[in-house]
Design a protein around this nucleic acid. Structure first.
Lengths: 134, 134
DNA sequence: GATTGTAATGTAATACTATTACATATGATC
DNA sequence: GATCATATGTAATAGTATTACATTACAATC
C-alpha cells in the first residue's frame, strides 16, 4: 500500500496561505504573502500549486485566475465541482450538484465527448451580501 | 422602437476574425491577425470584444483566456451557455443543457445566491478526435 | 559510504494577458 | 456650429504564467 507523500515545505506554505484566506488568492498574492518565508519567484508558487491541484487540495478558479484551498472533505470522488463566487465579498462556495453533473455527462454522452475536467463557476451575489444591511 | 446600432469598424473586424476561426483566439492573436487592417494596440481589440460580448455575439472562454464567435442563433435567451473544448483539436462546441441550468439554479435558490453569470466549460476529447485515425 | 536517479528548489529572463491614463476624432442632436 | 456621447488611437504599465538552466535534497542501490 502506497502512502501519499508528505507535502514539501513550499507546498505546505502555499496551502496554509490559501487555507487562511477567506477569498481566492492569485499566484502573485500568494507569493507576496510568502516573501517573509523566503519565497522569491513566481515559479516556486506555481510549482507548489500544481502539485496541490493534482492532489485535489487546491482548486483553480478559472474566471478569476486565482486559487482556493479545497473546501470539500473528499473532492477526489467527483471531478465536477462547481463554484459560486460572490462579486461583492469575493467569497467562494464550493459545491457538487448531481443534476449539473448529470446534465453535462448527458450531453457528453450524446456527443461522444470524453470529459477530462470541468470548470463550473457561477458569479453573482451571495446570501450574506444580498441581505439588507443591519 | 430602438434598433440595435450597427457594428463599428473595429467591432466588425474582430467579429469577422473570430467567425473565420475554427478555434478560440486570444486577444493578442486577434490583434496580430488584424495588424494588416491597421489595428495596433491591444486595447482596440479588448474594446471591441467588450461590446461584442455585451451583444452576445462573442463569448469568452475563461479557462483559455480566449474568445469565440457565438455559435448559437439566439444566445440571449439563456445566460447559461456551456462550452465543450477539445484538448486535441482545440474546437469549441457551444451548448445549452436544460438540466445543467436547472441544477445550478436549484443550488442558487437553496442558498439564496443570485446568479449574474456563469462559466461552464468542459474539457476533453471530442468525437472526431477520439475516432481511430483513418 | 559512494553512486545514481528522481523530485524539489532556486534564479533569471521572458512571454502572454489585461488595464489605466490621456488625447483625438466622429456622428447625432439641439 | 456647439454640445454630448461614443468610438478611436497611442503609450505606458500592471498582472499572470512559462521556459530555460543550475543546484540541492533525499531515497534506493551498489
Amino acid at each position: 500500500m502506497t502512502v501519499a507523500a508528505a507535502l514539501t515545505k513550499n507546498q505546505s506554505l502555499v496551502l496554509d496561505t490559501l487555507a487562511a484566506s477567506q477569498t481566492p488568492l492569485s499566484a502573485y498574492a500568494i507569493l507576496d504573502a510568502l516573501r517573509p518565508e523566503g519565497l522569491r519567484a513566481p515559479l516556486q508558487v506555481y510549482r507548489a500549486l500544481e502539485k496541490l491541484q493534482e492532489r485535489g487540495l487546491v482548486h483553480r478558479i478559472e474566471s478569476l485566475n486565482a486559487f482556493v484551498a479545497c473546501g470539500h472533505p473528499h473532492c477526489q470522488e467527483t471531478e465536477m465541482i462547481a463554484f459560486a463566487i460572490c462579486e461583492r465579498c469575493g467569497t467562494v462556495d464550493e459545491f457538487a450538484e448531481e443534476k449539473v453533473v448529470e446534465g453535462l455527462s448527458l450531453w457528453a454522452e450524446r456527443h461522444a465527448f470524453t470529459i477530462q475536467k470541468a470548470a463550473i463557476e457561477i458569479r453573482g451575489i451571495c446570501s450574506d451580501c444580498s441581505r439588507p444591511a443591519a
